[in-house]
């Protein structure tokens, strides 16, 4: 047996912690015959002993009070627990990777928006949502407009505020009139409905 192989085996199987007589063959025989490997093993053991014998000091006396004084506010709500349980299996093994949790919640929100948007589109509008040049017109600036824009999944729909009447052309007004009864609000915001984009 070569010294190199012997040392690799000794190290890989942590045989350095064994008594020489407990070592399996052919390691035992090799160590009996090889003073260099015996010396090597003794040195490795000496290093282990040195590390193990190091002092184990205590942290400062006010360690715990400083930790407790630095704790962030944490709300424990039933909803939070339910969500936490729901996404538990998706969690990354490391607690320092909150991104997975955030992504899971973001997916839920996105799914709700897409689902809600498609439902509203199916049930509430005769306007072809795939029609290019469409726009979502809102009576007031509201975050829902942006969300609905994402929900229908079309980048060519854009939120437009009705407080800016100059963005509505004649064609839009005609279309709005014709479809007035048929168009239902795209979202719960009654100010949102679909009209043709006029290129603004």
């Amino acid at each position: 047996m070569r010294c190199r192989d012997a040392r690799k085996q000794l190290g890989t199987h942590n045989y350095v912690e064994y008594n020489p007589e407990d070592l399996p063959e052919p390691l035992r025989t090799h160590l009996d015959l090889c003073p260099a490997c015996r010396r090597w093993m003794e040195r490795i053991r000496a290093v282990s002993d040195m590390v193990r014998s190091m002092a184990q000091p205590k942290p400062s006396d006010d360690f715990t009070s400083r930790v407790m004084g630095s704790l962030p506010k944490r709300s424990v709500s039933p909803v939070g627990n339910w969500l936490s349980g729901l996404f538990g299996p998706l969690r990354a093994p490391s607690p320092l990777l909150p991104a997975t949790h955030t992504i899971a919640v973001a997916c839920l929100v996105l799914a709700l928006l897409v689902g809600g948007g498609l439902y509203a589109a199916r049930t509430g509008s005769s306007v072809d949502l795939d029609m290019p040049g469409g726009a979502i017109v809102a009576d007031g600036a509201t975050p829902v407009t942006a969300a609905a824009s994402v929900a229908v999944g079309m980048s060519h729909f854009r939120p437009v505020s009705a407080s800016q009447p100059d963005v509505l052309g004649l064609e839009d007004l005609i279309l709005r009139h014709e479809n007035y009864e048929m168009n239902k609000p795209l979202s719960t915001d009654p100010g949102i409905r679909l009209v043709r984009d006029v290129g603004y």
Partner: peptide
């Protein structure tokens, strides 16, 4: 000491997980 304290603070924040 800083890292040890941070460990417990992180653990506290992640207890629910």
């Amino acid at each position: 000491e800083d890292v040890a304290q941070e460990t417990f603070i992180k653990a506290y924040s992640s207890l629910s997980s």
